[in-house]
């Protein structure tokens, strides 16, 4: 079973919800931080026994002894990652999507497997919560390959909770695709509603089951509550705005540690989305 936590807008409380669910879940449980550009789950759980592995994608490397500069690799590359001029050939590994087209078309086996570092995957555990988190290399543009590598590590043996990146484009798809249920976390402001609508459209396009959690309920204009009532999308939980919770979050303390009275609500949320 896989539950993803996503949102259109950033900073609405995805990590807060993911951490809370991991803490109230039956153990063992797996928490996967797929917000690889800015991963934050470890700040709240501080897992021990962290083991890290550097991840790479395959990019072409030219064997000049075999290359006859025919240009077929350049012609098939849709990403302009290879250029050939006269008796010169250059690759631009940072543009490569690893489609392997150049390997396929080279008549001389002149293309070797090189690699580009995309980031690190760290594995750890704390109190029977297994943590897996990706950290994109600073300067690397493409996050989906690292997110996909993380997602390939999903285990069927236990519940996996996925903390997704913000937005509505390819990194979110890589993180949420295939999840059994996606929780969209938002705040009840015009920005929150605007971005929630986009995220809901994405979920419909992906054909994924989803529901909505409002964070910092009480501030804003109540527009999300109204929209949920109009559209019939399930409003699963409202987490109240409370300075105590904001302070706990700021110090890297899970909100249910600061406010244990919220534990039953998160247990109910987990039950509802794993049904």
């Amino acid at each position: 079973m896989q539950i993803a936590i996503a949102s259109g807008k950033g900073g609405t409380g995805k990590t807060t919800v993911a951490i809370s669910l991991a803490l109230v879940a039956d153990k063992p449980v797996r928490l996967m931080d797929c917000d690889v550009e800015e991963p934050n789950c470890h700040l709240f759980l501080r897992p021990d026994h962290m083991e890290s592995q550097t991840m790479y994608v395959t990019v072409p490397e030219i064997d000049l002894a075999k290359c006859d500069f025919c240009g077929k690799c350049r012609d098939i590359c849709a990403f302009k990652a290879i250029s050939v001029f006269g008796k010169n050939i250059m690759t631009f590994p940072e543009l490569c999507h690893s489609c392997m087209g150049c390997f396929l078309v080279c008549p001389n086996e002149a293309i070797k497997e090189g690699k580009r570092e995309i980031g690190v995957i760290s594995q750890g555990s704390i109190n029977e919560i297994e943590t897996l988190s990706g950290t994109l290399r600073v300067g690397e543009a493409m996050s989906p390959p690292l997110i996909k590598k993380l997602r390939d590590m999903t285990s069927d043996a236990m519940l996996t909770i996925i903390d997704a990146p913000p937005g509505t484009s390819c990194p979110v798809i890589a993180a949420t695709k295939g999840a059994d249920f996606t929780i969209l976390v938002t705040e009840s402001t015009p920005f929150g509603l605007n971005d929630l609508k986009l995220a809901a459209k994405l979920m419909e396009k992906l054909g994924q089951k989803f529901g909505i959690v409002i964070n910092k309920a009480g501030i804003g204009d109540g527009s999300v509550e109204k929209w949920c009532a109009e559209t019939g999308y399930p409003l699963l939980l409202s987490i109240p705005f409370d300075r105590k919770l904001a302070e706990a979050y700021s110090n890297g303390i899970p909100i249910i540690k600061a406010a244990p009275e919220l534990i039953p609500a998160f247990k109910r949320l987990l039950e509802e989305v794993t049904q």
Binding site: G10, G11, E37, E38, L136, V138, G139, E140, A141, M142, S143, P165, P166, G167, P171
Partner: peptide, 10 residues
């Protein structure tokens, strides 16, 4: 600007 450090930010 967009959030994150990936392709739209770069």
């Amino acid at each position: 600007g967009p959030p994150g450090i990936g392709c739209p930010v770069i």
